[in-house]
């Protein structure tokens, strides 16, 4: 895979893809590189889309407003109210809606033609969303049951013979306080990184094979191109799915923190 002379071999993508050179403010904490720029662009795009669709929100909605309302209702009914119930769902709907929409749009950056990188494929944003979810479900649990009650229900789940607590409680501690936020962040990050790397691999392979391949090998370039198209479609699906799963898991963790018995 490693070629020493650049420009004549095939450059498979590596993790360096996710650490592009800085464009502005190199070296400072406000460094803007391509990925940060893409994030800002996606954020502005999301805000513009939502704002323009709901600017003159009427009781009988226009088409753009209907689309936004469709997504909002999907989040509210399918994610919030089905896991959290009506009352609790109402309180956490804004947060979960924000998480869903932001992650969805950031994920979609990977298939948008001139952006070509998902805003969530560098660890900062997934980690931040996971921390938001973490703080939210801990706060929800402590608010609902008090600190002691929360720890008792979650770390010492009822209905288990007391001897098993020696085994179960450390796992539960790890789960609640460490693993949940990390798996949330990591799941999103790994999916987006892998998807991006696959796309880059397919399309760079296509260009390499078609331009530099000899003879019939050019035809495999067509194969990789078709595979690239397929993986683009798959990436679209994965973008939506990962956003849904992140939001759903946040809701599920909140519900698990709040409920009285396991």
């Amino acid at each position: 895979m490693a070629e020493s002379d650049h420009g004549s071999g095939f450059h498979a993508p590596s993790i360096q893809e996710f650490f592009p050179p800085a464009i502005w403010f190199d070296g400072t904490p406000f460094e803007i590189n391509r990925i940060q720029l893409v994030r800002y662009i996606l954020m502005i795009g999301l805000i513009l889309w939502l704002w323009l669709s709901t600017r003159h929100a009427k009781l009988v909605p226009s088409r753009a407003q209907s689309v936004v309302e469709l997504l909002l209702d999907f989040v509210r009914v399918q994610i919030c109210e089905s896991t959290l119930g009506k009352k609790l769902g109402r309180r956490y709907t804004p947060l979960i809606t924000m998480i869903f929409f932001s992650i969805l749009v950031m994920n979609l950056g990977g298939v948008i033609p001139f952006l070509n990188i998902a805003g969530t494929s560098v660890v900062g944003l997934p980690l931040l969303f996971a921390l938001i979810a973490y703080v939210t479900y801990l706060a929800a649990g402590i608010r609902a049951q008090g600190l002691g009650g929360f720890l008792k229900t979650n770390l010492f789940p009822p209905g288990v013979p007391k001897a098993l607590y020696i085994l179960l409680t450390p796992i539960e501690i790890l789960q609640v306080f460490v693993l949940r936020p990390f798996t949330l962040a990591l799941r999103l990050l790994a999916n987006m990184m892998a998807g991006h790397l696959m796309l880059v691999l397919c399309f760079s392979a296509t260009s390499f094979l078609i331009l530099d391949g000899g003879g019939l090998i050019k035809l495999t370039g067509v194969l990789t191109f078709v595979a690239g198209i397929g993986i683009t479609g798959f990436e679209l699906f994965v973008a939506a799915l990962q956003a849904y799963i992140f939001a759903l898991l946040t809701a599920v963790y909140i519900q698990m923190s709040v409920e009285e018995e396991h």
Binding site: I15, F18, F19, A22, F25, T28, P29, F30, E31, I32, N33, Q36, R39, Y40, M43, S102, G119, V122, V123, G124, L125, L127, L128, F129, I132, L186, L189, M193
Partner: peptide, 17 residues
């Protein structure tokens, strides 16, 4: 380093969020 956010990463994410 894939899993440790760089400072500009954190700042950028915070601003966006």
């Amino acid at each position: 380093e894939v899993f440790l956010p760089a400072s500009y990463d954190i700042v950028g994410s915070l601003i966006v969020t």
